[in-house]
Amino acid sequence: MKYTPRIYAKALTESLASVSEGKETDIIKRFLASVHKRGDTRSLPDIIDAVSEIERRRVGGRLVEVAFARRHKKSVLDVFRALFTKHDEVVFRTEPELVAGVRITIDGEREFDQTASRRIKKLFR
């Protein structure tokens, strides 16, 4: 039976939570060997994403994706980063097709879209 990335991630996080300090590296090495043995190495990026998600949820954080139409200075990005808590993972993207403005997506589910591309689309809908 093939395990999904979420099952791998759950197994890893539960193992890490129950292990004594200093043994984490051994657990991770054995986990990676197990993933390799099952031929699921290709799923590792998804497993890492799932582990991050579980960890974020455990501490009450959110994945925040902030997309701009063009690159901004660090000071601008810091202003946005300051809007969220330290547990939130804030990712910045540059998507020229947005034309102008900003789009903020929280946990891939809720979106605050104030981009020109959306407004244009809405205007012509």
């Binding site: 946990d107 891939g108 589910e109 809720r110 979106e111 605050f112 104030q114 407004r119 809405k122 205007l123």
Partner: peptide, 29 residues
């Protein structure tokens, strides 16, 4: 049209296509 255009800012529900093919699609979110 532009004069009458109203766009209230707000949070919307969204998802992302993670798989597509054979007329069906899998969506996260």
């Amino acid at each position: 049209e532009i004069a009458g255009f109203r766009d209230e800012p707000g949070l919307e529900s969204v998802g992302t296509v993670v798989e597509a093919g054979d007329g069906i699609t899998k969506i996260s979110g």
